[in-house]
């Protein structure tokens, strides 16, 4: 991995840097493994043992994020793209997090969902 990064740095600015077909197949296998993992986690949770909801969500989201990172870096060539493209790709996710965190901050502080009944 480190060596690959080194060669990429070496080729920076070179138009002919590209990702080999072998890498695509390896990434695809990794994606399939992750997909099986996430479905397996769901099956285990449903049939074998009870996992608390937050943990299940964390597992599923971690796997989804891992898949996204693989697709973005390799299939979408962000790994070998210009620095600006990388910034934009990352920026989109940062802004999503800004939207989620600030809005949920309000909901958590406000008490959500609203409880019916007289005020305490």
């Amino acid at each position: 991995m480190a060596e690959q990064q080194h060669t990429n740095a070496h080729h920076h600015g070179d138009r002919h840097t590209h990702i080999s077909r072998g890498t695509y197949y390896r990434v695809f296998v990794a994606l399939m493994v992750l997909m099986v993992l996430t479905v397996a986690a769901w099956w285990v949770e449903k049939n074998l043992l009870h996992i608390p909801g937050w943990l299940a969500v964390t597992i599923a989201m971690s796997i989804a994020i891992a898949k996204t990172v693989l697709i973005v870096l390799y299939f979408m060539h962000v790994k070998i793209s210009s620095r600006m493209t990388q910034v934009y790709a990352a920026g989109a996710f940062v802004w999503l997090i800004i939207l989620f965190v600030i809005t949920m901050g309000d909901y958590v502080a406000r008490g959500w969902p609203p409880q019916p009944g007289p005020l305490p």
Binding site: Y88, A92, L96, L99
Partner: peptide, 29 residues
């Protein structure tokens, strides 16, 4: 490529609104 990525940023934010609603209502129910 850069233009397409800028457009993809837009798309991500478009779905971001729906994900936002998902989080809010999942939290509630």
């Amino acid at each position: 490529t850069l233009g397409m990525w800028a457009f993809l940023v837009t798309e991500i934010m478009l779905f971001g609104g729906i994900f936002m609603a998902y989080i809010v209502y999942r939290w509630a129910f």
